[in-house]
Each structure stands twice: as C-alpha cells, then as structure tokens.
Design a protein around this nucleic acid. Structure first.
Lengths: 206, 206
DNA sequence: TCCTTTATTTATCGAACGACAAACAAGCCG
DNA sequence: CGGCTTGTTTGTCGTTCGATAAATAAAGGA
C-alpha cells in the first residue's frame, strides 16, 4: 500500500488522455512512439515502464475511450423506454460524439485501424471485437423491446435489424470524417429511422 | 512512336494489378515499398522509374480500382430505369463487390486510409474526394428520378436521402470487413430500402 | 560500329521505427 | 545513515522506412 520507491513525476491518467488525443487524430499505425512520448511529456522508456508497449497502451486508451465517448450511446440504449426510442437516441448520441468540437470527427472503433500492416493484425481483431460488442448491444436492446412488449418480432429478423442499425452507426462515422455537420447527420438518422415502421410492427398504442 | 532504349522487362499493367492486390490487403500506410517491390517482381527503383512514387502508384492503383470494382455499382445507377431500382441495384452491386471471393472484403475508397500519419494527409484528401464523387453520383441519380417522373421530390430533401444511402454504402464496407456474409449484407440492404417508401412519395403506378 | 536512349541492378542514403539496457535519481524503511 | 525499490534519463539496439545515385544492360538510329 505504501508508496515504495521513487514516485512518478507524471499522472498516468493525464498521460493516457494525451495518448488518446494523439491516437484519435492519427489512428494506430499513424501514431509513432516519439509522437506519443512528446505529447505525453515523458520519455518512451517511461511509456514502456508504465504501459507495457505501444499495443498495450492503445488497448488502455481504447478502454478510456469506451468509458467516455462510448457511454452516451450506451446510456441511450439502456435508459430509453422503448426499443425505437433507444435506437433513435443511440444514433443521435453517436452523432453528438462524432461531431464534438475539439475532437476528431469519427469513432475510433471504426476508423482507427481498419486496415494495416500484417504485424498489427491483433489490433484489428481487438477493434473488430469491440465493434461486435456494439452489434450485440443493439441486438440485445431490440430483444428487450420484444420482451417488454413495445416491439413485435420484426419479420426481417432481429439480427438483420440490429445489423442494419450497426451499419448506420458505422456509416455515420465515415460521414463525420468527411466533414458532415451535426445537422446533416441528423438528417441521415431521420432517414434511417424512417425504415422503422416498415421493419417492425409495433403496437399502435405505443 | 518507335520503342527507343531498352524495353521494359515487366508489364506495367500486370505490376499495377499486383500493387492493387497488396494495397487492398493492407491499406496505404500498411503497405511498404519492399512489400510492393516483392509482389510486383521488380526492384523498388523500377517502381520509382515507372510510377513515380508510392503516392503516385497508389493514385494509379485507385484509378484501376475505380475502373474495375467501381464499375458495377456505377452501371447500376446508370442503367436501372427508376431511381428506386437504381439505388437498390447499386447497393446490391456494392455488396457483390465487397464480398467477392479472392479479394479483401471491403471498399478501398472507404477503408484503405481513413486515418494515418500527418505526412499522408494528401492521400486521405484524395480518397475523401472520391467518396464525395460517390455521394454526388447518388444524388444525381435521385435528381434524374425526379426529372424522369419516377420519384417525387422527397420531403426529407434530395441531399439528405443521397447522404443516407451513401452512409449505408460506407457502413456496408465495415460490415463486410467484419466478416458479414453476402446474405447478411442483403438483409441490411432490405432494411435500408424499407425506408424508401417513407422517404419518397413515388407515383403509385410506377 | 558507336552513340543515344531507356530500363534494370546494386548499393546505399538519412531518418524514423518500436523497443530496451544501463546508469542515475528520489522516495520509504530499518 | 545505508540499503531497497521504483522511476527517469540517456543512449542505442537492429530494422525498416521511402527514396535515389551510380553503374550496368539492352534496345534503336546514324
């Protein structure tokens, strides 16, 4: 418990946030250890001592990212009363996050490392796993809607609808990256939600 | 006209196709000149002599990519008789291309270089421009539908609908990258087209 | 034939890459 | 204090990066 040895001269949480900023700006392979060390204000050897390696640092960065930027969409899915409202609010929360002033306009899960050198295959798998979690969360929320009675089992299949809205989330990220405004994302979301009525047969009293 | 000097010992078109394969597998930054030279069967100096630089080679690769993989979706937009059929066929042609056996399952315009090092900004801008062309082509096709009388001007706005279907195309690429099958992409497309009726008010006799 | 032109080979450039070893510094504990 | 533990600094490891200069090779034209 007691602090043995020489104390750290930097705050790991602060350094992690600075690493997040840089990885977010440039993606995984586009960010070098020298860039990171400069931005974090420490030597690269301290990165290894504190965080393990570039890859482990990135994984910790993504944990922070998920706990911050990922929370509003997750909360929307969790707290909205109906499946339809949850999906709609999740899309809007996503749009908020990927057009936030002062941060890069895209979702790191989707665009931080979609392709790259062979030796970074593990990172791509890691991100693909997180994307699969997104899909699962959406599918689970739809299933809850069925259980709650606010959503009739869609004729298209729950998985198909979940995959569709996952696709919209992922497409939104590319749109934001290409400079789409929050208002333009809202229009896209309106279009995407226009499919809801045809996809589902929600009881009319909801 | 006459072939002056020592003739080339390799076929630039073949070499370009081999470069396309490698860039497609690994993205722009993930592919090194050594990788390219090995795959193309020539020395890196010959790449510079024939193609200029890594960046110029990539631009030529993308021209080839657009002329081959890009053609079926473009043809769908061009040749289908109504806007609705054109959008639907374009989405299905896209799905065909990004699940083609023997090729990576994603669209290079979207995922070959969405993020990266600062010095490769020009490449990202280049790809962003090609993505904008996609959006424009979709918007133009919708406008033609209005002119042809098979599509009433959508209340949501033509641009919004065009941006929506562009978003779906881009999301499909991430889905394919994550292992979605052609059948699963078809389900997504069905969901995306389910919005059409609500977005537009096509004359019922079409 | 020899000159010009173009292509290929070979070798290498300086810089940056991720990663780490060794030496030094700063705290607690006995 | 003197040892122990931990963090930081410094320097450098071997590799790879994109890019090119110089030397060699193979064709046509005079």
């Amino acid at each position: 418990m007691a602090a043995r040895g020489r104390p750290r001269t930097f705050d790991p949480d602060t350094a992690l946030r600075q690493a997040l900023e840089l990885f977010w700006e440039r993606g995984y392979e586009g960010t070098s250890l020298k860039d990171l060390a400069d931005a974090m204000g420490i030597a690269s050897a301290s990165i290894y001592a504190c965080f393990g390696s570039k890859e482990e640092l990135f994984r910790k960065v993504m944990a922070l990212y998920g706990a911050t930027s990922g929370e509003p969409p997750r909360r929307a899915l969790r707290e909205q009363p109906t499946a339809r409202a949850a999906i709609h609010a999740m899309l809007r929360a996503t749009a908020d996050e990927i057009t936030r002033p002062g941060a890069p306009h895209y979702c790191m899960l989707i665009l931080a490392a979609p392709t790259g050198a062979v030796e970074n295959h593990a990172i791509r798998e890691f991100l693909a796993g997180l994307r699969h979690d997104q899909f699962t969360a959406i599918g689970d929320r739809l299933a809850r809607g069925v259980a709650d009675g606010d959503l009739a089992a869609p004729s298209a299949g729950l998985d198909a609808v979940a995959r569709y809205y996952t696709t919209v989330v992922q497409g939104l990220s590319v749109q934001a990256r290409d400079g789409a405004t929050r208002a333009e994302l809202e229009e896209i979301i309106t279009c995407a939600m226009a499919a809801w009525g045809a996809l589902t047969s929600a009881p009319s009293h909801i």
